[in-house]
Design a protein around this nucleic acid. Structure first.
Lengths: 407, 407
DNA sequence: GTCAGTTTGTTGTGCCGTAAAACATAAGCG
DNA sequence: CGCTTATGTTTTACGGCACAACAAACTGAC
């Protein structure tokens, strides 16, 4: 087509905003508190410039100054840390539970509410209102003075992020739901804007950044979220690849064997039919409400049926992941959810087979690692995404004067 | 780990450079010539600012002013077009030919040399020197005054872009080759810096942008390059996704059936074993030197063996591409090379099967389209990549005074 | 205890690039 | 020929950063 794209010219204020964000991100990314001079050295800006930017950030509470250390020569530096006055709300609906979390700019979970509940076939509206109650209860306990920058909701299904519609969530039995409308109608979030996202995409974010702006141990990886189904996400250089419509990363429905069992997605031989929680437990002869650790125990006890189920799943994982690694050139795979719990018996076999099947395996050996155990990583990830918006461009936030929260 | 990343602070000169590039790209992206006032309107900058930026670009020849049109009211505008004084050299080595092209900033092929040659098992040094001769001959015919910004070489194999090493090219029988060193030693490129890239990645670029800075009809697509093997590339929002090491897009080695034939990559059941040129022709009972059009003719004539081979390939393509589409969320597939030539008999079947196998197929129907026929798209893509560096940031180029080329 | 040495943070000066508005230019049109 | 319209240029002002000098605060040695 060749139509000229709309792109705004850079004016002087942009460089201010850009540097404001750079300073904030630099402080957030650091392991130890940085002084103004440290930031200047890292960003190759002058101390005077950094100083003025930092002053702005401190006055809005995006950065905090802490007590100067002693013992070193020269004028004592003023250590800077991410502020505690800014936080975001993360929500999650899953087949087995509701979750609400508040995460602050330092990445600390300020407050949390979890509620186990079987939600397969539940009514979307009722469930979302219950989630709203959970959130409202949580928000009441948040210390006053904390500014909430937004709310995010992690959902296990196909989500249209831009329009805010959950198109389909088979494990909940939901389709065409607009959570923001439901929660706005019930007014439990106090006008906080709500965005939604895919559970795996958001859970992957908790691996990509251990705190807002601070990248995790892996910069590029494929995340596999073993909840009831198998969700997935691809992270490239710390950013979750969402794809054109936000549906990228559906590794669970990569075809492992075209002659394999029919999947409820309409295709056949999907990975989920081999390594999904139900498929795995059923193949091992375990009840559907058994836990992955039961499976691991059986395998370690020498149960041949369990071992066979695990082998079958490992083989399927290797085939599917090899394709993903070949296409994305990301040799690291992070296993979360039930796959993470079963990683002890799964990972070694998958890793070996991956090595054989990956074209570039000769030069970079594929690795499988396990995500830290967390009942609701999607909720944390949703909060992190909201906070990431602040880090990307703090300027719009420094203007707003009043806080949303408070008792 | 959370180490603070090195990021430079934005200084004032950056905004100049940024806007310089923006103006250049805006003009290049437009279908019709733009005036200074048009650019100002599109970029939301003032006419005065645009005017000064354009003056700089015109003085370096990155933009040309053409004759003002007549017939409209008001002071006649000065139409701007990409300059003809800037060009890049694109080279390609493939199993069947050598190619050299010079492409200018308007996307026109200024000069071209093609040489058919069987290069399987050839000596890398001899072949690259021959390519250098071809290029030197081509450069002699380039009009004087044309500035060459760089040279790119498209190679059919695993390439380490950053270090400039062709790690492995099975279809040439090459491994661990450093083309830049060979060509620098023979001094046939007159000191022009050479970068290398994967053939499919670069060929995909010719689909993504029909001219430097002017995007093609598809912004997001998976490109399948059917040369001797099957290469691939993923294009997201006009940018080729290269992956961590530059090896992304190897769709040819996605596993279609784990029990399928062994591939020379060490894996089994790779797509290439079903839809690769050799596999396809062999399955159809055609000689290895037959052309894809022969296959199409046989199918249309009702040859059952040919039809069966095509069906098998289509099935394999659907399985592999469904996985790719599920993971990347890119519902458009562009077929190039022999797959493009056979698209008439392949595409409809693949499209139908894709629709069934893609998770999001209910909302966005996957489409298969054909790339324009071109004997050496990699060469053009390599040149486009060099020119893209100029468009991304023209500032470094406007400083250099002297040209490289000339008779 | 005092003073040199050292590192940090702040204050003025100048340069540079864009915005805004007035002005100059070059057509068409009645 | 003057009016209208649109483009391109000039002038002035403002905001941002770099640079350099300065002030602040602590260590350590004599």
């Amino acid at each position: 087509m060749g139509t000229a794209q709309q792109a705004a010219g850079a004016r002087q204020s942009l460089i201010r905003e850009s540097n404001l964000g750079l300073v904030l991100r630099t402080v957030c990314a650091a392991d130890a508190p940085l002084s103004r001079a440290d930031v200047a050295a890292l960003t190759s800006m002058t101390r005077s410039t950094v100083s003025r930017l930092v002053d702005d950030l401190v006055s809005t509470g995006l950065l905090d100054e802490v007590a100067p250390p002693t013992g070193r020569q020269g004028r004592p530096a003023t250590p800077l840390v991410p502020g505690t006055r800014w936080a975001a709300l993360g929500l999650q609906v899953n087949a087995g539970y509701l979750a609400a979390r508040v995460v602050d700019l330092r990445g600390r979970v300020v407050g949390e509410r979890l509620e186990a509940q079987d939600l397969l076939g539940s009514d979307p509206e009722t469930t979302l209102v219950a989630l709203g109650d959970l959130a409202a209860d949580l928000l009441r306990r948040v210390p006053s003075g904390v500014r909430l920058v937004g709310a995010g909701l992690a959902l296990p299904g196909i989500v249209s992020v831009s329009s805010g519609v959950l198109l389909s969530a088979p494990n909940l039995g939901w389709s065409d739901v607009r959570p923001a409308d439901v929660l706005a109608a019930s007014d439990r979030l106090g006008g906080l804007p709500l965005s939604i996202g895919n559970e795996a995409d958001l859970a992957a974010r908790t691996v990509a950044e251990e705190a807002p702006g601070r990248s995790g141990s892996h910069g590029d990886f494929v995340y596999l979220s073993g909840e009831t189904g198998i969700g997935g996400a691809a992270v490239l250089d710390g950013r979750v690849m969402t794809g054109r419509h936000g549906w990228a990363g559906e590794v669970g429905h990569v075809c492992v064997d075209p002659d394999g069992p029919v999947c409820r997605c309409g295709s056949s031989g999907c990975l989920e039919q081999y390594a999904g929680k139900r498929a795995l437990l059923a193949a091992a002869g375990l009840p559907l409400d058994a836990s992955p650790s039961d499976l691991v125990a059986r395998v370690e006890a020498g149960d041949p049926r369990a071992s066979q189920a695990v082998d079958r799943a490992a083989r399927a994982l290797a085939v599917a992941l090899a394709g993903v690694v070949n296409v994305l050139d990301i040799p690291t795979v992070v296993l979360g959810g039930h796959l993470g719990e079963a990683a002890g018996v799964l990972a070694p076999a998958v890793e070996a087979m991956l090595h054989e099947r990956v074209l570039s395996g000769r030069w970079v050996r594929p690795r499988i690692v396990t995500a830290p155990a967390d009942p609701a990583p999607g909720a944390t990830g949703a909060a992190l995404r909201e906070l990431a918006a602040v880090l990307a461009g703090p300027a719009p936030w420094t203007d707003r004067a009043t806080a949303v929260s408070g008792p």
